[in-house]
């Protein structure tokens, strides 16, 4: 005999299916190619604040790590000549769990070759409005273009703090950010935060003004995505990876290897590109007005 239906779970499944379908439709209409890259990778993200799950074979031999994002492989596809690619995949971050974090979550990443971060910002604005309509949640406040704010302006406006002093102490920067700035970002409508300090450039190129060509979108105090005008300089990228490794060593964090194949492909030539990584569970949570990503997942860790 069948168990009684669980309407909450069925509703989540139906909404997720609509969301995933509309994301695919959005990118197909713009002639993006859907791609797949491996979940187990030889070199996870080196970002000092990311922890990857190590993967071992049954007898204990190390195999690699679960990808914290598909970034390196997708950029290698750009070097291989792909022009517009997107991927919906699971990403894994070992030490993140809370109302807006699951250790396994769904990531949407897309890249445009011969494009800038502005092109990708436009994609982001249109995508969110598009999927909101598909979910029957069209809202005037989601219509592009969205307001833009630099990191410096956000700090001044919400915390009466100046970036050039705060950036000297990264922990203090993030403390002020999570306590005073982020909760107030995008309360009415999504807001795009640009011009991150060069020390937080990650895999973004630097702009002529010396700031990172990096943007994030915040909506109702939640970080929705992180995008770059991509760094294509292999030498600079290697320098940043080495700095990340040094920071990991100093912090006592595991030191992951540098992805030499990614650097080789950068060296061979990656077109000027824009890319973005967006948390799909958070997007659904925000569009439905849910108060946690767990509420929009059939099997968050706590119910697994």
């Amino acid at each position: 005999m069948a168990a009684p239906a669980d309407p909450a779970v069925l509703q989540v499944l139906a909404l997720r299916a609509v969301l995933l379908g509309s994301i695919r439709r959005f990118f197909e209409e713009r002639e993006f190619l859907e791609v797949e890259t491996p979940a187990i990778v030889p070199c996870p993200g080196l970002d000092v604040h990311l922890a990857a799950f190590e993967v071992r074979a049954p007898k204990g031999e190390p195999v690699g790590w679960l990808a914290t994002s598909p970034e390196y492989q997708m950029k290698r596809l750009l070097s291989a000549g792909a022009e517009r690619i997107f991927q919906l995949c699971r990403s894994y971050r070992a030490e993140e769990h809370g109302r807006h974090h699951e250790r396994e979550f769904t990531m949407l990443e897309w890249y445009r070759a011969n494009a800038t971060s502005d092109d990708v910002i436009r994609d982001t604005e249109e995508l969110v409005a598009f999927v909101a309509s598909a979910l029957d949640q069209p809202a005037p406040e989601l219509q592009p273009p969205w307001q833009r704010l630099t990191v410096d302006e956000a700090l001044q406006f919400h915390a009466n703090a100046a970036l050039d002093t705060l950036v000297q102490d990264e922990e203090q920067f993030f403390r002020v950010w999570v306590e005073e700035v982020q909760p107030r970002l995008g309360n009415e409508r999504p807001i795009i935060v640009t011009d991150w300090p060069s020390s937080m450039a990650s895999l973004a190129r630097l702009k002529p003004n010396g700031m990172a060509d990096r943007f994030e979108v915040f909506f109702r105090g939640v970080e929705l995505c992180n995008g770059f005008g991509e760094l294509t300089d292999a030498t600079e990228q290697r320098r940043r990876f080495q700095r990340d490794q040094a920071e990991r060593r100093a912090a006592g964090a595991p030191i992951y290897p540098i992805d030499e194949r990614f650097l080789d492909d950068l060296e061979r030539g990656m077109p000027e590109s824009g890319g973005n990584a967006l948390g799909v569970d958070r997007l659904l949570m925000l569009l439905l007005g849910a108060d946690s990503i767990q509420a929009v997942m059939p099997f968050p860790e706590e119910r697994l």
Partner: peptide, 14 residues
């Protein structure tokens, strides 16, 4: 309590 972590930043518990 709430776990908060900017994607590219330090994690905190508020």
């Amino acid at each position: 309590h709430q776990f908060v972590k900017p994607g590219k930043g330090q994690a905190f518990i508020r």
